[in-house]
Design a protein around this nucleic acid. Sequence first.
DNA 1: TTGTAGGCGTTATCAA
DNA 2: TTGATAACGCCTACAA
Lengths: 342, 342
Amino acid sequence: MVTREGRAASVKDVAAAAGVSLGTVSNVLNRPDRVSASTRTRVQEAMAELGFVRNESARQLRAGTSRTLAYVMLDASNPFFTDVAQGIESAAEAADLSLVLCNSGNGAPREEAHLALLQQQRVQGVLVTPVNPESPVLEEVRRRGTPLVIVDRTRDDRSFCSVAVDDRLGGRLAVEHLVDRGHTKVAFIGGPIHLGQVRDRLEGARQAWAAAGLPEDDLVVLATEALDVQEGRNAGQRLSGLPTTRRPTAAFCANDLLALGLLQQAIGSGTRVPEQLAIVGYDDIVFASAAAVPLTSVRQPRQELGRTAAELVLDEATNDAHQHQQVLFTPELVARASTLDG
Amino acid sequence: MVTREGRAASVKDVAAAAGVSLGTVSNVLNRPDRVSASTRTRVQEAMAELGFVRNESARQLRAGTSRTLAYVMLDASNPFFTDVAQGIESAAEAADLSLVLCNSGNGAPREEAHLALLQQQRVQGVLVTPVNPESPVLEEVRRRGTPLVIVDRTRDDRSFCSVAVDDRLGGRLAVEHLVDRGHTKVAFIGGPIHLGQVRDRLEGARQAWAAAGLPEDDLVVLATEALDVQEGRNAGQRLSGLPTTRRPTAAFCANDLLALGLLQQAIGSGTRVPEQLAIVGYDDIVFASAAAVPLTSVRQPRQELGRTAAELVLDEATNDAHQHQQVLFTPELVARASTLDG
DNA sequence: TTGTAGGCGTTATCAA
DNA sequence: TTGATAACGCCTACAA
């Protein structure tokens, strides 16, 4: 397994063991046809014997580039992002690249640390759902030579390729649906409020609200600290605390995790869904339809999002005539029991 | 950003731009205190100017080792594994290592491809939830010098460090609970049946069943092709298809995804849970408690699983006196409405 | 404090 | 078909 104390076997060791030159070993590895069958097997036996493993660092140093793609996820525990990752993976596999996943866990320092390392590793390209799409860090990455595509976000100046879903439209769809069902007092639940996604979905919600001629104040914003199940439960408690007259009859949550938490809290506290509280989520993760009350949600083409992003980053990496483009997919409302009584 | 056409800037380029020697640039990078303040800033300006990024390959080649840990996940879309990954991440961060995630998606070829690449990258250590813990591939990895720890599985010959949860006990707990609730005809739903986990949970279930003196045939095994939500729905259909007299009054599912799918199908087809069908899941993922009928489940210490595994692999990587050990955590039944009527 | 030189493991070129 | 050699970029002795 090792030869000179502690160090892994190298081509040189293999060459010595097989009694050939180092160049021959390299040929066995890279152009086996140029090596006679007998030498080849001898070399291969030596490799097996020594437990030889190609050193990717040396290889990459020589080649100047690697065969991997990376995706820096915003939140690995949100099924939405793992579905996106699956889409990326299928595109990567098709291009014979391997994919490494990193998780920023919604933390800018972690994200930056991952990005720094990925650049140092000279990955072919980076896909990232950034904590903040306007961060100058992203520009730096590209300026230093690593193709970068923004996933599920867009940057205002359009200076990057990005693949996202029309969040304003999604917000409109959600609220139009609620308005159609007769709701005149609705809560928007989401946060941190500065997140592009949250902002856009809220903006869409407000557009639809205004278009319906409803008073601005009756679309109540409940800001959360994160987009997870626990915060959904918390929001539910805040909702329960409101006097009945001021309590919204429906809630539009910025994602399904919040919606599931809210739903759980509502049911636990005896609130009937949708009779007393209708709920719309966002993402249509697999668990939305399996929820206590199947959740109405805004569906996004998750896998396609990932696949498209991967294709864009590969184009940026390999095509000299690459043009940045912002792909915007269209979301779709999936109505289920959480808003459909009777 | 680049200097000699297309190539990224190297220390050499930085040295030239700053008018110093290459060794000085390296010192700025690694021992900044040995460089005078003025030289240092000059060099740093040159780096910024050129968009210099350390070449990790060269660095690693020189150093012989990397600063990253890897986790090859069995199924990135199962929240159980992302929670495990979070535990690993916290340990990695504490040790100042970065973590890369790979997803085998339950496919042996993908797993092998990932493992091969990780070895070539000379990662400090690999954590893996293997498709098959008995695979000789795992031995090969270690024989070639990469520390490897098995997560959420164990290997019969105890030749690896592993961290797992007592699946037999988990199975027993689940079925004892159902027996206590008076069920005398129960379905075990899970598969592929050869998976260690599925096998062990079933075995535990059978032990509890036998211990209760119930006839073997009344613990019906419904084998599934995978452990996901869709297969849970399919299992539900098969269950519905049985004549009422032969239909089990309870189901123990090998994981929560199956249980959620089953629950969804049951509710959709008008089966009352738990009155007509009680359901026990496994893993207690965050969505279990938020389900249509909050799910009784067997909880595993997910984050702790990951953290412990990471610590073991680091020990194997750095401690000469390392001893392989098999850590076995204890699961816990969390009873909720899906089994508790009245 | 700064500069020089050698080597990490791999690949590819060129000569034998 | 095989072998010798240089180069990729970085780090660290060691010398100046």
